[in-house]
Simulated assay, not measured.
Amino acid sequence: MIELKTPAEIERMHVTGRFVAEVLTEVGRLADVGVNLLDLEHHVRGMIKRRGAESCYWDYAPSFGKGPFRNVICLSVNDAVLHGLPHDYTLRDGDVLTADLAVTIDGWAADSARTVIVGTPAEEDLRLIRATEEALEAGIEAARPGNRIGDISAAIWTVAHDYGYPVNTEFGGHGIGRTMHEDLHVSNKGQPGRGMKLRPGLTLALEPWFARTTDRIVYDPDGWTIRSADGSRTAHSEHTVAVTEDGPLVLTRRSTEDG
């Protein structure tokens, strides 16, 4: 069942979204050469505890995972892009790091992800990240009353196509609200004018993610971390968005972002 949120409920999600944005900003600041992923994990644990929030990831056990997830943030490096299990890895110069975070505060969830470069950036990595960010903004722009889910998917895919990046359709965006994953799948590839009509009160997590040269994925032995099948680098951008009468409202916008 798809639950439309009231303006008051959207504002409660916005409170959570601001905190998620704060944490991801902090992770981006801390991600540097010589920093261990487990140190980032524990830092985020502290932030969540101090805020009185609850991790959506802890004990998460979907059908595609291997046992319950026992971390509070997904950290994926280089060719890893989704569900990266924090582990004993020290960041190196030029690494591409994706941080994905979802929490609830007072029963309302928000979910966001960003990809950053550690140390010296390579132009091809900057281009890949930029493509996911532009695709996300295109998807957000399409999240307006009267449009359809396919309009969001098509907007995301168009940006990927223009950049020349293939698109995987196994994992994409989703409904969000009282829990991290609510009904409604938002593919990163689709046709305009198709799917459910968007109505005010609909809340979605939109998350374009691309690998440079493949749309196929493989899993690490940990059963969680998803990588590009050919080892090419990846990037992932995500925001929680509310459809309102006045247009899309981004609930996880970081202060360092435009818009």
Rank of each mutant, 00 (worst) to 15 (best):
I2G: 09
I2V: 15
K5P: 00
T16W: 01
G17K: 02
R18H: 09
R18C: 08
V20F: 01
A21D: 05
G28I: 01
R29C: 08
L40I: 15
L40H: 06
E41C: 06
H42F: 10
H43K: 11
R45W: 08
R51G: 02
S55K: 11
S63M: 07
S63P: 00
N78G: 11
V81T: 11
H83V: 05
L91F: 14
R92P: 00
D95L: 08
V96S: 06
A102W: 06
V103R: 05
W108I: 00
W108T: 02
A113E: 05
A113H: 07
T115M: 09
A122T: 01
E137R: 15
A142P: 00
A143Q: 10
S153A: 13
H161T: 13
Y163C: 14
Y165V: 04
V167C: 14
N168C: 14
E170T: 04
E182Y: 06
H185L: 13
K197M: 13
R199W: 00
G201C: 07
A205L: 04
F210Q: 10
T214M: 08
T214L: 09
D215N: 15
I217R: 07
V218A: 14
Y219P: 02
P221N: 12
S232F: 07
R233E: 04
V241Q: 08
E245R: 14
G247S: 09
L249Y: 02
R253Y: 02
R253S: 05
S255P: 01
E257Q: 13
G259M: 07
